[in-house]
């Protein structure tokens, strides 16, 4: 399979201190790449480097190469706004925008200039269906997104990304605060979505990576310790640290 994203010797510094150490990996077209590792190991930093969310923060510096479809993401010619439309992200804390469910879903596409009401309606139904939320909210699309439960809010955040029809979807511990049923719904959604999208799933739950990821990478203190087919990483890891982590001996 072709590579969607290529990362070569990519390092990140926060306030001149290094938190990602020369990471190299590829993300294949239409795969789910799982990223696991203890908290503080740089998973979020890595993920938010890919759609350039980190640079909204002060003290961010990077080195090395990060490219999508062969185009350097950090090149001065890259249109960041366009990039973020192609690479959607779902954050750990679900925060809908302070507007209705409907408006949340169409927010991004409206900005891209789509105004046709019928088209927007279709898009809302399709995105909410893909995010496994449609049946729960179809009769109350006009209530504020902030009034949904945590699990529903997270699926709404996924739906608003899907509405953009991005090429890549980044998920940062999307189920960390959710109950098992909401978690299962999100995992089901992801399994269906990978036929259309390339997905990177950071998760604090190793079992989740084992369930849904095609390949899995293990981060530890800013290093990519190991990456490979999920089954292989979980059954016969090459590195001792990986083994310790997935068997729960630390982290």
């Amino acid at each position: 399979m072709a590579n969607k994203i290529e990362i070569e010797n990519f390092s990140v510094y926060w306030n001149a201190e290094r938190y990602l150490n020369s990471i190299s990996l590829e993300v294949k077209m239409n795969e789910i790449l799982g990223i696991i590792g203890p908290s503080g190991s740089g998973k979020t930093t890595f993920l938010r480097s890919i759609n350039r969310m980190n640079e909204l923060e002060t003290g961010f510096k990077h080195e090395g190469l990060l490219s999508m479809d062969g185009n350097d993401i950090y090149s001065p010619d890259t249109d960041v706004v366009l990039l973020r439309k192609k690479i959607g992200i779902v954050f750990a804390m679900p925060v809908p925008l302070p507007m209705s469910i409907y408006e949340n879903v169409v927010y991004g596409v409206r900005l891209s200039g789509i105004r046709n009401k019928q088209k927007l309606d279709e898009l809302v139904e399709r995105s909410l269906t893909e995010a496994y939320l449609w049946n729960e909210v179809k009769d109350r699309l006009n209530i504020s997104g902030l009034r949904l439960s945590g699990g529903q809010q997270q699926r709404l955040c996924l739906a608003r990304v899907l509405a953009m029809e991005p090429e890549v979807i980044l998920l940062d511990e999307p189920t960390s605060g959710l109950d098992p049923i909401s978690t299962a719904k999100i995992e089901d959604a992801l399994n269906e979505l990978k036929s259309k999208y390339t997905i990177i799933l950071v998760t604090n739950n190793t079992k989740q990576a084992a369930r849904v990821a095609d390949r899995t990478g293990f981060f530890l203190m800013g290093d990519l310790i190991e990456i490979g087919d999920t089954r292989k990483v979980f059954t016969s890891p090459v590195k001792k640290e990986t083994d310790d982590y997935i068997t729960g001996r630390f982290g």
Partner: peptide, 27 residues
């Protein structure tokens, strides 16, 4: 206005000005 509103909007490909007048100023 919570930072996460701005982040959510920017992550959906909004410019700073779009984020300001569609999200921040409304809130």
């Amino acid at each position: 206005v919570p930072r996460s509103y701005r982040e959510g909007s920017l992550a959906l490909g909004a410019t700073t000005w779009q984020t300001t007048h569609m999200v921040t100023l409304k809130a």
